[in-house]
């Protein structure tokens, strides 16, 4: 279970993201990976998502929580890589515009705590 960036080199990832954006122009390519030291949240069955650009972060987090069948009491944070938490009212398009990686993907990490130790 290597991180996505270690499974494919930069050129491949960049080409893949560009191809996806041309085929699915209304979707944002998002890579969601579990925090490497996460102990409480289960692994997601999917890593790679194509997300409607108008979906808000709140809606997206809800979808992922439901996918993982989390209890309402279970803490879940979706962090934008290298930037921490994004405002929940932002749309995926806005988050992508501000935080997309050089390869064209948007990277997120999920964890049961909002700050990494």
């Amino acid at each position: 279970n290597k991180p996505f960036k270690l499974r494919k080199n930069f050129v491949t990832r960049k080409q893949e993201a560009a191809g996806i954006r041309s085929k699915f122009s209304n979707k944002i390519p998002v890579i969601i990976e579990r925090y490497e030291r996460e102990k409480f949240l289960p692994p997601l069955d999917k890593t790679k998502f194509l997300v409607p650009h108008e979906l808000t972060m709140t809606q997206f987090v809800t979808i992922i929580r439901n996918r993982m069948a989390l209890l309402p009491t279970q803490a879940f944070y979706l962090l934008i890589d290298n930037s921490g938490l994004a405002s929940m009212s932002l749309t995926m398009a806005q988050v992508y515009k501000d935080h997309q990686d050089e390869d064209g993907f948007l990277y997120m990490t999920y964890a049961s705590q909002e700050m990494f130790g």
Partner: peptide, 28 residues
Amino acid sequence: PAATAVAKNVYAVLDLYGRITAVSIVSS
């Protein structure tokens, strides 16, 4: 002739209602 490696990537495609369908992106 050398075989062309074809890789299938599976993406989870979300709609606005939270439904997920799987799409395979074939790349060579």
